[in-house]
Design a protein around this nucleic acid. Structure first.
Lengths: 205, 205
DNA sequence: AGGAAAACATACGGTTCGTATGTCAGTGAG
DNA sequence: CTCACTGACATACGAACCGTATGTTTTCCT
């Protein structure tokens, strides 16, 4: 049948199976959703049994947690690159919001991170994204307030609200239409609305 | 044991059992979450069997849908009353945002409507809240744009974003602290941030 | 080389959901 | 008034799924 154990070291063995389980889980969660994804199916798709899954992730919830963590890291990496491309912090911040919205159109991100994860992980997700995009938004906002570029208020609360606005906008764009034309039009409308919302934060005395 | 069928008409019978099932489901979903709530428990709490539940709601998902619909109606009713109390539409709109945020601190609303329902119902929820708070927000915004009170952009997209901002703000406030003191402080911070965000929408030429 | 521990695979029980079927009380027509 | 009919449930059954407990093989360390 499969490869007759091609002589891997212990570390390589573990790394490969976890990677395959993560990949299979991402596919299953993205297409069928968390609740409707059976662990048997995921494990069969990854070429292992449920024993391996429980050994590495402790259960279904742990698997989702690892998937979300992985996706979050990928998003954050792209956001970091985008931020570095702009000299002006306010311009960079708005470019990051724009890039986040575009990335969040990915059905994988939508289903896993924006819809299922909040329900399943709950508070765990809040602790998790203390190291994700939210904290960067908050820090950027705090710096911009200090420099007087935007109006001063609670940075953490404002960061949460901007994050929520972007999340709902992404879900709205994705649900707007299945054909790519309507999708693109909805994205433009959302970006315009986001511009209005963010413009209002600018300080103008 | 229970009442020996106190001679109810068919309509009363149906109405009472649906009401009891809805009440029991609200309690269970709010405290244990949708996934962890067993239908056996809900039915036992309501004093009926699973047959009644399937007869009236078609299944677990239909039950959640009915619960969300009921809660949504309650919220909308309070929002309508608040809006009528203000002569100025812009003042009324901001008062409604404030009232929504305060209402959304209810753990029942948080768990059922803001966390579980989007994951379980998905697109069904989008269709459902076409008759809920979102549509009122959108119409209010559209009217305010026409009257030149706020900056003009896509009303639907902006309504979605404001809704998302309020949702995340409510979740953030609720997660801020368990003791009522911290809760109240976080609410104040969120309301202040919301004021900044909405102030920016005002038109000032 | 030999024991320990990691890295899985396998077997099993318990819980839960949906459906299929059965039963009984209202209800309307004749 | 009665009798067929239907709505409003209750009960029984099968299937899927999750978690754990246990067994087995391979690698690593001394």
């Amino acid at each position: 049948m499969g490869e007759p154990a091609p002589r891997r070291s212990r570390g390589e063995m573990s790394e490969q199976t976890t990677a395959q389980l993560l990949a299979a889980a991402r596919r299953a969660f993205a297409t069928s959703g968390y609740a409707a994804s059976a662990m048997d199916t995921i494990c069969a798709d990854a070429g292992v049994t449920r024993g391996a899954l429980y050994h590495h992730f402790g259960g279904k919830e742990g698997l989702l947690e690892a998937v979300v963590y992985q996706i979050d890291a990928e998003i954050s990496a792209r956001l970091d690159m985008e931020e570095k491309r702009h000299a002006d912090p306010w311009v960079g911040f708005r470019a990051c919001c724009r890039l986040w919205l575009e990335q969040a159109l990915d059905p994988e991100i939508q289903r896993i991170c924006l819809r299922d994860a909040p329900s399943v992980l709950g508070q765990k997700l809040r602790d998790l994204d203390e190291i994700s995009a939210i904290v960067e938004i908050r820090d950027s906002l705090a710096a911009l307030m200090l420099s007087g570029r935007i109006r001063a208020t609670d940075p953490e609360a404002l960061a949460r609200m901007i994050n929520g606005a972007l999340v709902d906008a992404a879900l709205w764009v994705a649900a707007a239409g299945d054909q790519p034309g309507a999708q693109h039009a909805a994205l433009d409308r959302a970006l315009a609305a986001a511009d209005v919302l963010l413009d209002g934060l600018e300080r103008r005395d």
